[in-house]
Design a protein around this nucleic acid. Structure first.
Lengths: 309, 309
DNA sequence: CTCAGTCATTTGTCTTAGACATTATAAGGA
DNA sequence: TCCTTATAATGTCTAAGACAAATGACTGAG
């Protein structure tokens, strides 16, 4: 009898095949193989058919490497350091050691696994701050700090899953409770295939809805061609795409440019999210939003431009 | 002067490199190359460095192929037919019956792309029927018929995305509005890696919450090992897994069996969803739920058994 | 002292063909 | 009709090499 369903995990050695590592670290199979060839890491075991089997420590080191590379380190410079050294580099990178107390308190509740109290804390923050501040301060902060802590291994996977679910509940609840739209544009909101992060998308939807735009939210991973077809069907004025840092900046920019060529000139293309936070410039006709302030400003600009006509 | 930013698109021939095709069709690069080698399609042009450049017609045929393969056709049987023939195959897939009128009316609103009216129709159905009937009748029916129509090509991808988002909004809104829990068990609710369907999970959460159970929802795709760790952390009484028909029955059953061996005997394991609708029996200690009635019955049985002790 | 341009190095992605595990279909037997 | 077994189908993995895009170091000019 063999492990059928989860062929990616070997319970004894906790070994992962290359597809599982690609999924869990975001590093492509090609990259993993070429790192092994060039730098000698990761050097996984092989199964009976010479296929790679990565260990859990390998996986953790790869995650740290990915983070540090996102921060600007070069792979060749750091790949042969120990996991401990890499952890140090990560924590050295965050000088403002601890999250603000109100964020820390909520994370603490999450780590104590008290579902009801955790939910109530989020709801209270929402009531107290209002939707806009809740999204741009509390949720953004929680995303950042929980992400950090997860990378450092201080937050288990299942807690992160629970966090994501509850934030979705609360944001969707808040969005549905918004009053009808004002004078804003119709904004089609989605992400491209490969980009699975939903929270960023919901945060944008919350802000846009609060500011009076009419959102057509398609969730994550809509193929480009289907976005093209959706634009005339829903008569949208703007297509906004979200790219989390799980995707490379190049991929995000090329997706935006491709979409731009497929859409009529009257429809604007906006892109935002972690992957684009450090991008310098995009293709002509593509607007980069590096913060929620940028988003609100873009909305305001749209209003002005379209009121004059 | 060259196209700097967007290496994926050649405006003249509308040519896409292999990475763009992978992203847009969901077919892996390996699959694209092996199809070319074995079947002679797609046979893309090459750029000056012998790299593949796919045309837009290729892309459209690939999407049709993907659709038909999802439906159950074999690649080798259909890959050499013309795009027109494939379209015919798609539309030849006619429904055995037509949906009941109240379902058909809502689908009609979706197809007319009137977001507000569509949302209102769903909300009205919820108000009129109450959460339980809304989930077990309206949402279940919509899932089924929209799935059918999507396979037949009568519902565009983006409409199906929009449907999914709105159902999520409404279900999560209803769940959060439920009163606190009664005397039911604590149920950990999630799916295994590879199973991405969220709506089924939310439907179960809605029913369980309405019946007084306390749900710990982890969203989709929680690795088995992390489920094991979550059970003591959240002190749950039951682990319920959802398997849509996107996964094979064998895979679902083996996942349930593996989880059963990892959990203490006092914790129950329940499995349900389309993939298990026709399953005969599961591993010992695993409860199969083939309908929402089964789910409510299982909950009642748990209450009785644990009240006696 | 800053800015822009050139060159060298690093790094990720694409290429090839072959091997094989996994899944689906068909055929045979209870 | 259902279950088991054989055969065909299909997708993913492997290898090393090639090269473009991205980055860093260096230079010279304003």
């Amino acid at each position: 009898m063999t492990e059928i369903l989860d062929s990616t995990v070997d319970p004894q050695g906790a070994c992962y095949n290359i597809a599982a590592v690609e999924r869990d670290t975001g590093l492509s199979k090609d990259t993993l193989r070429v790192w092994e060839r060039r730098y000698g890491f990761p050097k996984p075991q092989r199964d009976q058919h010479d296929e790679r089997l990565y260990s859990l420590p390998d996986l953790e080191k790869l995650r740290l490497l990915r983070l540090l590379i996102d921060y600007g380190h070069r792979p060749g410079k750091i790949i042969n350091r120990s996991t401990a050294e890499l952890s140090q580099l990560v924590s050295a990178r965050t000088p403002d050691q601890s999250p603000p107390p109100e964020i820390a308190a909520i994370i603490e509740l999450l780590l104590q696994h008290d579902v009801d109290q955790f939910r109530n804390a989020l709801l209270q923050a929402l009531m107290k701050q209002g939707l806009l501040r809740f999204v741009t301060e509390t949720v953004a902060g929680l995303n950042h700090w929980i992400g950090e802590a997860w990378l450092a291994g201080r937050v288990p996977v299942f807690d992160e899953h629970l966090y994501s679910e509850h934030i979705q509940n609360i944001l969707r609840n808040a969005i549905i409770a918004q009053p009808g739209r004002g004078s804003g544009p119709r904004v089609l909101l989605t992400s491209l295939p490969g980009e699975k992060h939903r929270i960023g998308l919901l945060m944008v939807e919350a802000v846009l809805t609060a500011e009076g735009a009419a959102c057509v939210a398609l969730g994550t991973e809509t193929p480009i061609i289907d976005i093209k077809d959706a634009v005339p069907a829903y008569r949208v004025d703007v297509v906004a795409l979200s790219f989390s840092s799980a995707i490379t900046q190049t991929a995000a920019l090329s997706g935006l440019a491709e979409l731009r060529t497929l859409l009529p000139a009257g429809v604007e293309v906006w892109g935002g999210g972690g992957a684009l936070a450090r991008a310098r410039k995009a293709a002509p006709g593509v607007l980069l939003l590096r913060s929620f302030d940028d988003l609100r400003y873009a909305l305001e600009r749209w209003r002005v431009e379209h009121a004059l006509r």
